[in-house]
Design a protein around this nucleic acid. Structure first.
Lengths: 153, 153
DNA sequence: ATAAAAGAGGACTATTTTAGTCCTATTTGA
DNA sequence: TCAAATAGGACTAAAATAGTCCTCTTTTAT
């Protein structure tokens, strides 16, 4: 449930290894070597991330990639959107369409609202935080009840 | 993305239509009629929900289903777990295993921590709230920054 | 007793998503 | 002008999801 795809996970790893905004470009092959992910896959990810403007690219010899902005200005939500498209938690909330069950759907946009809330939270998490493997654990507050999230093991 | 499956969405709808804890049982066929979902699918959902103890069943003639507890005591997290299994946001966080990229994975359990946080939040949302189509919008607070989530349109 | 109504459980198929690979075109620097 | 790169997209393979169906057991009413 509530799963991001493996490619998005890899994509985050790729982003975490990329040179900073003003630094020298790094080729897809180098990124593949650094991350241990297959070159074709890295290449595909970098293309998507470039199209989404999270990554800047240079073509030709000595070409390559680097972050398009400071890591602190790249959010988890943007990474997900770039690699999976802006899909929502349920199908009918995704399309904002009228599904067959509409007339009977008392649940309606409950999941939708949850989805929005989660997405907002994800917008507050940036790549820098994703890079810090042991960063302080996030805290969510829902409907006034603060919830502290402990580390797993 | 962060998507729940369509079956989970349907499952929530089914739950929302089920009689309360002490009420009379409702057959799968009746639930199917009430929700507009195919009988085989409703049946499958109800079996899963029963196995997960969210729903109580009676067999034989006059048999059927009803909620096993008050709607207020059934959380969104439980619904997801019942219908999709306790899968986590990323693969390696799901298995707690050692993936090939471990040595290089500076991202590590960042998504994992996010996942835990989201799950905790989901535990605070109950079926009653899911039933209220226009309930007050949830608020998340992440890492000290309160985020208010407006209604969509 | 027995038949009918209902759920339990699981096997199976089809569909859809996701992942991964590869080919061709374009750009750039030496 | 050649080689090193990215851009873009087509294609295949694998996996997850959805949906259907069959058989067995339980319960109630006749």
């Amino acid at each position: 449930m509530l799963r991001i795809s493996r490619l998005t996970d890899y994509g985050t790893l790729v982003l975490a290894h990329l040179p900073a905004r003003e630094a020298e470009l790094m080729s897809a092959a180098e990124v593949a070597a650094a991350t241990g992910i297959n070159l074709p896959t890295v290449s595909k990810l970098l293309k998507s991330l470039t199209k989404a403007k999270l990554v800047a690219s240079g073509r030709g010899a000595q070409g390559g990639y680097r972050l398009a902005r400071d890591a602190a200005r790249i959010s988890a939500a943007e990474i997900i959107d770039a690699l999976e498209g802006p899909v929502s938690i349920t199908e009918c909330s995704a399309t904002d369409s009228h599904c067959d069950l509409e007339s009977v759907c008392s649940v309606g946009n409950a999941w939708q609202r949850i989805n929005v809330a989660i997405r907002r939270a994800l917008q507050e998490i940036n790549l820098t935080e994703l890079q810090r493997a042991r960063a302080p654990v996030p805290r969510f507050e829902l409907a006034g009840t603060p919830i502290h999230v402990e580390r797993k093991g």
